[in-house]
């Protein structure tokens, strides 16, 4: 058996030979830096400065991407919107994937009655009306979230404008995480069931290893491929879910924004000012393309069997 570190070294070596994955990695890092560090730069304008006289203007030196219908700088709105979309996409996906993987793995590995019970629970959650849940959820979290914001501002003494956009998003993360894990749980369960009767698992059982060790050390690494793939697939759905929830009052409050909201606004105007659709979509699509190619690269690199190729 090889040492753990060299497994990662191997994976990294294989990944670095995968050109599209490496390009994707750089694109992602670039977009992340642009969105999270970019707005600190002096020439990036305020995303909420309204100038009605200058509405839906084309790109210029003052406004690189032009302006939106309220005359706000689109470049800065795309960057600020990216902060929301990227953090929602990455954090909420991570939450959903963690819950889904553990839940699905346990259901698949345990099998029998426990599996049936766990999966019927998933069915029920899956069939419950999504909008009803969201409306109820927004009712419950509305007051605690704003009270928490006020409390945090009082305690920390930080400026409201830097605190509020983040604290008001916490309910959104929870909501998305809580509903996003169902499909991944099903997929992981199916994979674990397919793997758990293979020879290497039987070997581990006969060695007397504990069940949790077998599940998490031996079975899960063998189903990491579908997990990575599904994770990267889930990100776009979750990013767009944010825009749906924002329309229902959860999520970003206007004048804040996100890529989903910007794209929706742009889609309504695609025939009059297509640039309003083009720029946010460009960022959104590049991120997702990069993320998915990186995901495939990671999958290939981490595939324990391809190591022997």
């Amino acid at each position: 058996m090889e040492k753990g570190t060299s497994l990662w070294n191997d994976a990294w070596r294989r990944l670095s030979h995968n050109l599209p994955a490496i390009i994707s990695l750089f694109v992602l890092i670039f977009i992340l830096l642009l969105c999270f560090i970019g707005p600190l730069l002096p020439f990036v304008q305020s995303p909420s400065a309204i100038d009605l006289a200058n509405s839906t203007a084309g790109p210029s030196t003052a406004h690189w991407f032009g302006t939106d219908p309220l005359g706000r700088d689109l470049f800065s709105r795309v960057l600020y919107g990216g902060r929301v979309s990227l953090s929602v996409g990455l954090v909420a996906t991570a939450v959903a994937v963690c819950i889904g993987v553990i839940y699905g793995a346990i259901a698949g590995y345990a099998g029998g009655k426990l599996d049936d019970f766990l999966m019927r629970f998933v069915d029920i959650l899956f069939a419950l009306p999504f909008l009803v849940l969201v409306i109820l959820f927004s009712l419950v979290v509305d007051r605690p979230a704003s009270e928490f914001t006020e409390w945090f501002i009082r305690k920390s003494g930080w400026a409201r404008d830097s605190v509020a956009p983040i604290t008001t998003l916490i309910p959104l993360f929870i909501a998305i995480g809580a509903i996003g894990w169902l499909t991944i749980a099903r997929i992981v369960r199916a994979q674990v069931m397919a793997v758990k009767n293979q020879e290497f698992v039987e070997a581990a059982v006969s060695l007397g290893l504990s069940r949790s060790r077998i599940l998490f050390r031996h079975i899960l690494p063998n189903v990491i491929g579908p997990i990575i793939i599904y994770t990267t697939l889930a990100v776009p759905g979750i990013m767009l879910l944010e825009s749906v929830l924002s329309f229902l009052g959860l999520g970003v409050k206007p004048p804040g924004s996100s890529w989903g909201i910007l794209i929706k606004e742009g889609a309504d105007r695609m025939e009059t000012s297509w640039l309003l659709l083009f720029f946010p979509s460009l960022f959104f699509a590049s991120t997702l393309f990069a993320l998915n190619f990186l995901g495939d690269g990671l999958r290939d690199a981490l595939d324990p069997k391809s190591a022997k190729d």
């Binding site: 776009p236 759905g237 767009l240 794209i263 929706k264 889609a267 699509a285 393309f289 998915n292």
Partner: peptide, 11 residues
Amino acid sequence: AMLGICLPSFV
């Protein structure tokens, strides 16, 4: 194949 998820259905 990925075009379909890189642009939302409302686009």
